[in-house]
Amino acid sequence: MRARFRGHGEIEFEKAPLGDIADGDVRLRVDVCALCGSDKRLLHSGSPVVPGHEIGGTVVGGALPEGTRGIVYIPVFCGACVRCVAGRTNQCLHLSELIGWQRDGGFAEHVDVPARCVLPVPDDIPLSVAVLGLDTVGTAAHALRLALRTQDTVDRALVVGAGPLGLGVVAVAQAMGVAVDAFDPNPARLATATALGARPAGDLSAENQYDMVVEVSGADAARETAQRVVRPGGTVVALGESNEPYTMPATPRWRRTDCYTVRSFYFPVDEVDANWDLLRGVGAALRDLIVKPLTLPELPEAFARFVAGDHVKPCIVSTDAHLTEVTR
């Protein structure tokens, strides 16, 4: 069974036979596939492929040993260009496909992906934690690593937007030794950020408050806030996605100051081992605070509750009885 997004919020399920596995591919039984805020765009627009890009599963055939547990690296990188050879696979010069966007993803019982896109999970990390190593922790960690290169010290950072990725930033920043304030207009999400150790932000109307601001919502108001409260010489990390252009203010203050703007897409494979270490420290607590397990037939409900803000991070999990590590 697999889900198809028909547009305007309509999700249909269909049965499809499993064909042959292409050379170099791996077939995974999808044990967990997390919902992402970006999936809402496909829910609205529809998709020619099966969505779902935060995938954890078990190899059942193809180019890797059966039984291998893995999470799926979204960019289908070439593995041969100068960026890939250097380990910077998120910067692949020939990137044309993302799993769940241009080829079938994980809102299904099985998915076929290139073997090079399967990241084997260490034995001591359950899949329910490992899947957070993709967008939630992996993307957050890479962005923070880039941003910290721009600053000698960071007294305190501000995270604007406490959705799943913003909460990942909160958890990872503290693991990296950076104190964090958080802002979100949703009181429940802000409370989750404070439960992870963030301090609620105070009045954000004044300028020059933070050495680093991580903007995670993509909203125009959030971008304006980030550019207002960052100190001269500070760093704005633009992680939020939006269909609107990213603009900088045409104000005297902005024209007369130094400022770094960091845009990050995804993490490279040469950071995977460091991300496992982060997950060992923060992953279980993050999972227990934000993840809501649901099954594939409950996907429409999962999206409805996700859009409404009732669930922070719904995850579609297999109904196989032995997958206790996924459902906890």
Rank of each mutant, 00 (worst) to 15 (best):
V169L: 10
C117N: 15
A206D: 09
G163I: 04
L95Q: 08
L18R: 13
D220F: 12
V229A: 04
D31V: 12
L132R: 07
R223Y: 08
A16G: 01
P51D: 04
S264E: 01
V230T: 03
Q174S: 08
S47Q: 08
P200T: 02
V312F: 04
T251H: 04
C36D: 05
A130Y: 04
A86P: 03
R253N: 01
L144P: 10
V159N: 03
G100F: 00
R145F: 14
I290E: 12
Y260D: 15
G197L: 07
S47G: 10
S264R: 04
G202W: 08
V85P: 00
V137Q: 14
V262P: 04
P51F: 07
A22H: 04
T257Y: 00
F107K: 01
V50L: 03
I71C: 09
C259W: 07
C315W: 03
R256D: 12
G283N: 08
H311C: 13
G67D: 02
H44F: 13
V178P: 09
S45C: 12
G233F: 12
V236P: 03
L196R: 08
T319Q: 14
R41V: 15
L239Y: 07
C36W: 10
L35Q: 05
L98M: 12
T139C: 15
D23M: 11
R328T: 13
V118D: 08
G7E: 06
R69P: 07
R305E: 14
T68A: 03
E244Q: 14
G46S: 06
P300V: 06
L35T: 09
A195N: 09
R231W: 00
G62V: 00
P200F: 09
R41G: 06
L239V: 02
V82H: 14
A221E: 12
D25G: 10
D258W: 09
C78D: 13
